[in-house]
Nucleic acid binder design. Structure first.
Lengths: 226, 226
DNA sequence: CTTGACATCGAACGCATGTTCAGGTATGAT
DNA sequence: ATCATACCTGAACATGCGTTCGATGTCAAG
């Protein structure tokens, strides 16, 4: 019945405790007490928890402030990197107009339901976040841009673009929103799908063309089957 | 008439306490006790600290877990979100073998050159990071999975999969690595491209098929023209 | 001056929580 | 069998720490 710990590394219980501390900290913003650890890891005695905590400390997995209530922390787990909270302004779909960007308005970015958090080191250094917003792709009309239903596209506000940049455009001619690589040619614009097997769209320069922003990043959360 | 409080919502002492809590939390990774707040804010009585804490809570600046030692936290102002640093183990390309996953080995995740930082709230809650790794797509062979050259795919280790999950597989038959939706049928496996216009691959059950992991997320950094 | 809301103090109270100890039970080596 | 080691139990103990309360000081309104 007794669990034998493998000679090296962490036993199953050490790992469970470690995980619990991190999850608790994440949830309550303060560390758990010894008794709380015990209850959640099926350890009936506080002394056993203390016993494991000592081992974890000795092996460098946690730090403890003795005598201080809840004075413990997991070492190294704090990969806290600077993140930007980017508001999801709305959907983007072929038939829908793009959400209006209201310059100078501070969006409520506190609600993480309507925002994505992106590590700053994944974005171009110059981006400070104020000009960034995100759109949620609806439908499969962007498949030629290698973007599928449910994808999140992170955009930077822009009125025009340079050759080779991927932009979100509204095409009044076709009454359609789309994501394409942008190229300015002699007397027309070429909108090139990301998928090299698909053909470009050409727009004459005298036709209207509304560039809404440049694509900075695409994030796809792949659905898990429940 | 009501007596007018200090010009603004927060008095100088409120602010000092608020600042102290945040600094303490940053420094020690756990919240301060009432007495510690008192000492550092020149308040001699714990009841006075409690008095101010009540006000801060009433005005929505902090949250308190009554009866719990050090059970308090500052609301909002929390610019950074918890992130997971996911190691990029190597490239994935049609002709290349997949990087070997060495179970139980702690990868060096300190180097942000070979890792991506992903906000935890973008990942399934159960993922603790230990089973996650990332691959960098090389070449355009994954286009049928809506994944392009340069994309980062975040994976979870797995040996098998359930129907409908997207997996990274190694096909000894074709000597090829690929990303496909996985379906187990009567006597064969069906590997379905994400792009609904493309046709599936069928593998008989007696043929070898190595599942290397499930796709959790795809991140595409769209190139900026310099 | 009196009143009353606000701020402060000091002390006591009591539960929350870390610590310690005197034993138990298993497994493996001697 | 004997001993050593790792794991576990339950309880007692000491103290960290939140809570409560009566007393005092301050200041503006009545």
């Amino acid at each position: 019945m007794m669990m034998v710990r493998k000679s090296k590394g962490l036993g199953e219980r050490h790992q469970k405790i470690l995980d619990f501390i991190q999850e608790y900290q994440r949830k309550y913003k303060h560390p758990p007490s010894i008794r709380e650890i015990g209850e959640n890891c099926d350890i009936s005695s506080t002394s056993v928890v203390n016993y494991y905590l000592d081992q974890l400390e000795k092996n460098g997995y946690i730090e403890r402030d003795r005598k201080i209530s809840r004075g413990l922390r997991v070492i190294g787990a704090n990969t806290s990197v600077e993140t930007l909270r980017i508001p999801i302004l709305g959907p983007i779909a072929a038939g829908l107009p793009l959400p209006e960007l209201q310059p100078g308005v501070n969006y409520f970015t506190d609600n993480e339901i309507n925002a994505v958090d992106v590590a700053r080191n994944l974005l171009p250094a110059k981006d400070k976040g104020a000009d960034l917003y995100a759109l949620e792709v609806k439908g499969e009309s962007m498949i030629d841009a290698m973007i599928n239903d449910g994808d999140i596209v992170v955009m930077r506000r822009a009125d025009d673009a340079r050759n080779g940049e991927m932009v979100a455009v509204w095409l009044p001619r076709d009454n359609e929103a789309t994501l394409k690589y942008f190229f300015k040619e002699k007397d027309r614009y070429r909108l090139q799908p990301a998928n090299p097997t698909m053909k470009p769209i050409f727009i004459n320069k005298d036709e209207p063309l509304e560039i809404k922003g440049k694509v900075v990043m695409v994030i796809r959360k792949v659905e898990m089957v429940a």
